[in-house]
C-alpha cells in the first residue's frame, strides 16, 4: 500500500500532475515520488513543480490583508476553495521483477492512481545508476539545472550524507556538461552546498 501524498489527475509518458488532499506538507521540489503504472510496475518521478490554485477556475482568489491565523479564524471556508497540486517528471520505474531502471516506463500512470513518497531505500536504488541525472537533464521545458542539484542533494541525504556519492554524482554532471563548464560549475555549486 502506498502511503499516499496525492492522486494523479493528469498523466503522460514523461510526467504527471497530482492533487494533494490537504494543503499542509506539500512534497518538496526535487523529492522522489512513486506511482503505479500498469500491472506490477511502479514509476518513479521527481517533483518539479508545486502550486496552490483555486478549485473553481472562474473564481480567482483575492488578497484579503489578513494573516493565515486571522484567515483561519475569520474566513475558514477560503481554505476549502484552494487545492494543492504538484507536477512530477518520470525518471525511472521498478519492473515486474523488482528491478529498478533509470529510464522511462512503458506506460504512464493511470489517472486517479495514488502517488506516494519514496523511502530512502527506493531513492538509493533509483539513484545507484547515475543515469538519473541524464534523465533529468533531458526533460524539456523544465528548470533542469535546479532539478538536478535538488535531486542529487536528496539522494545524498538519503545516503546518510555519503561524500563519495556526492563526488561521483558531481563527476557525472561534469562529464555530461563537459562542453558547458560554467553551467556544470553552477550546478556543482548548488550540489556542493549541502549539510
Amino acid at each position: 500500500m502506498i502511503d499516499r501524498i496525492g492522486e494523479v489527475i493528469e498523466a503522460s509518458t514523461t510526467r504527471f500532475r497530482a492533487q494533494r488532499e490537504e494543503l499542509d506538507n506539500p512534497p518538496a521540489f526535487g523529492s522522489f515520488v512513486k506511482v503505479p503504472s500498469g500491472p506490477d510496475i511502479t514509476s518513479y518521478a521527481i517533483v518539479y513543480n508545486v502550486y496552490e490554485t483555486s478549485i473553481d477556475a472562474s473564481r480567482r482568489p483575492m488578497a484579503m490583508g489578513l494573516t493565515e491565523e486571522e484567515l483561519k479564524a475569520q474566513q475558514p471556508q477560503i481554505f476549502e476553495m484552494i487545492r494543492l497540486e504538484f507536477e512530477a517528471a518520470i525518471v525511472g520505474f521498478k519492473d515486474q521483477g523488482g528491478a529498478v531502471k533509470a529510464y522511462l516506463p512503458p506506460w504512464p500512470p493511470r489517472i486517479h492512481a495514488f502517488v506516494g513518497a519514496c523511502g530512502p531505500e527506493e531513492v538509493i536504488s533509483l539513484t545507484e545508476d547515475l543515469d538519473f541525472i541524464r534523465a533529468i537533464n533531458a526533460l524539456p521545458g523544465l528548470p533542469t539545472d535546479e532539478l538536478i542539484a535538488a535531486a542529487v542533494r536528496v539522494a545524498y541525504q538519503n545516503r546518510d550524507c555519503d561524500a563519495e556519492f556526492l563526488v561521483k554524482a558531481g563527476q557525472e554532471i561534469a562529464i555530461m556538461l563537459k562542453e558547458e563548464y560554467e553551467r556544470a560549475r553552477s550546478i556543482l555549486r548548488r550540489v556542493g552546498h549541502v549539510g
Binding site: 563537459k178 563548464y181 560549475r185
Partner: peptide, 24 residues
C-alpha cells in the same frame, strides 16, 4: 584538461577539485 574553460576558472574548493579530477 578536456576543456580550456576549466583552466581559466579553476575549481576553488576541495569538492570541485575532486569532481573535476579524472573528468575534466
Amino acid at each position: 584538461s578536456t576543456n580550456e574553460d576549466i583552466l581559466l576558472t579553476p575549481p576553488t574548493d576541495d569538492f570541485d577539485r575532486r569532481v573535476h579530477l579524472g573528468v575534466s
